[in-house]
């Protein structure tokens, strides 16, 4: 049995002094190397759950562990995000005043890499996502698919062991959506990363090894595909 990367028990998240309950007691675990799709209607809590996994936000109650360490009690959540987690956003979230090559280097500032090493690694990562020729372009000059590929390269900057993807194909046409999904899955397999992908597209979810379906802040089904 593979060791758990994430383990959650009774995970709850409330906003506005409890008036909004985004998570209402979630129990689950994710193993090393798994590709888990989290699906569900808008507002069901799937993005909130992803934020908890990435230490972007913290639960109101319950426990959440990463490799046995309590995520809410991490001494340096930023260091956890920098070293262990790669995040791919729906809206790409590239910084507009930096080229593709520079965007990929930004997370590397939290490592000991020197400037030349950062540049070299960013170049290799862009090559691995098929954007070697577009490395010096600013995001505004890239297509949606290209931007998401830059964002994927950026998420891999510090060789994370977990990829968190929030609707990564949500802003793309169907052709680019397939290409991006293929790319993410290929990289996940090549690097044996754990992939947690939030989507409301059942076609995309079917590519995962496991589909967790949520509704009203609870997991209503958790099935292997």
């Amino acid at each position: 049995m593979k060791p758990h990367v994430f383990a959650a028990v009774g995970l709850k998240k409330e906003f506005d002094d409890g008036r909004v309950q985004a998570l209402r007691g979630v129990d689950f675990s994710i193993a090393q190397g798994e590709f888990v799709a989290i699906t569900g209607p808008s507002g069901c809590g799937k993005t909130t759950l992803l934020q908890m996994l990435g230490a972007l936000d913290f639960p109101s109650s319950g426990t959440l562990h990463y490799r046995g360490n309590s995520i809410p009690d991490l001494p340096e959540p930023a260091a956890y995000r920098a070293r262990e987690i790669g995040i791919i956003f729906q809206a790409f979230n590239l910084l507009p005043t930096f080229t593709a090559l520079e965007n990929v280097q930004i997370p590397m500032f939290e490592t000991d890499m020197r400037a030349a090493e950062r540049k070299e690694r960013a170049g290799l990562l862009l090559k691995s996502v098929g954007l070697a020729e577009r490395r010096d372009h600013f995001p505004a000059k890239l297509s949606g698919g290209e931007r998401q590929r830059v964002a994927i390269a950026r998420s891999l900057a510090n060789s994370p062991s977990v990829l968190l993807a929030d609707e990564p194909t949500g802003n793309l046409d169907s052709e680019n959506a397939h290409l991006i999904l293929d790319l993410i899955i290929r990289l996940q397999r090549e690097q044996n990363m754990t992939l947690v992908l939030v989507t409301h597209d059942s076609g995309i979810a079917q590519r995962a090894s496991r589909v967790v379906h949520m509704k009203d802040g609870r997991i209503v089904s958790d099935l292997a595909t």
Partner: peptide, 16 residues
Amino acid sequence: KQEISILLAIGWKRAR
């Protein structure tokens, strides 16, 4: 705000 929150999300420490 958005840009800074992205920097924090991708691992930048608040001190940076």
